[in-house]
Amino acid sequence: MEFLVLPFMQRAIIAAVIAGAVSPAIGAYIVQRRLSLLGDGLGHVAIAGVGLALATGIAPLPMAVAVSVLGAVIIELLRTSGKASADVAMAILFYGGLATGVLLAGMVGQGAGTLSNYLFGSLLTVSAEDLWLILGMSVVILVPALGLLPQLFAVCSDEDYARTLGLPVRRYNLLIVILAAVTITVSMRTVGLLLVSALMVVPVATANNLTIGFGPALGLAMGIGAASSVGGVVGSYYLNAPPGSLIVVFTIAVFTVTLPLSGRLRRRLPRVVDDPDPTQLPHEVDEHKEHTHGADCGHPAISHHDHTDYIHDGHRHAPHLDHYDEH
């Protein structure tokens, strides 16, 4: 435990706890909207911000926030445009961001080594100033992510219905992607821009397997994310490896180990009692014994599933035992 007295490790662990808790808090909404790979794309865009910061000498974190938020807004506008070309435009944005970041970093002599600190995380790069900025941004993320949980859940779970409630659906959707963009930059020091998406998605998937209900799952995912991140940072200290890779390995390990528990949980749920067979329920009967329906009875016949109904006096008769049911 000697690492606890090292200032850079103290900062790295605090940053890991924050990133690990915040990432799944937004990831829960991203997963719910079936946009699990959005974080990956935004991570690529943020690399352009890092490259721009390295090229201009500005602090990387604020520049990455600005560029990734701009990218998030563009992505959401493209996505909601509904055009087929939006898919291609997003791919261009993602890979353009990655290429621009690598190019700008290379042009100022900051090679792959420097950039990899941001792509896969680095224990040494979390400065005290960064830590305060990360702390501030995490508050900015968590207040709406948790405070607006019912509204964001409604928008993500049933968008049409949310509109009928008068909720500003477009604004909430935009808020989610902007918060995702900020989350990615919060996490870039610990887990790295290329792996942050895993921290947004995998703890959420694990929690979904272990709990019922969106609120409980979100809380559990934050806990799993924070624990995995701390484990990854501490492990990387001993293994001298980038923390991002180990954090992701930890989250996947937790997912895999807890997978059998998911089956147990399902079995403990009360069994769904299917709605009873309608034919066994009280149903409307017309004995109508003075007439037998048939091919030549004069009543229009309608094929209805596995039997034939006959139109009689404005309603439909279906033969059943010694009487006719009203269909």
Binding site: Q32, R34, P150, F153, C156, Y161, A162, F214, G215
Partner: peptide
């Protein structure tokens, strides 16, 4: 869209 949503969460919306 969220398969694990509780019935009460759906009604709350």
């Amino acid at each position: 869209q969220y398969p694990q949503a509780r019935v009460s969460e759906v009604v709350t919306t």
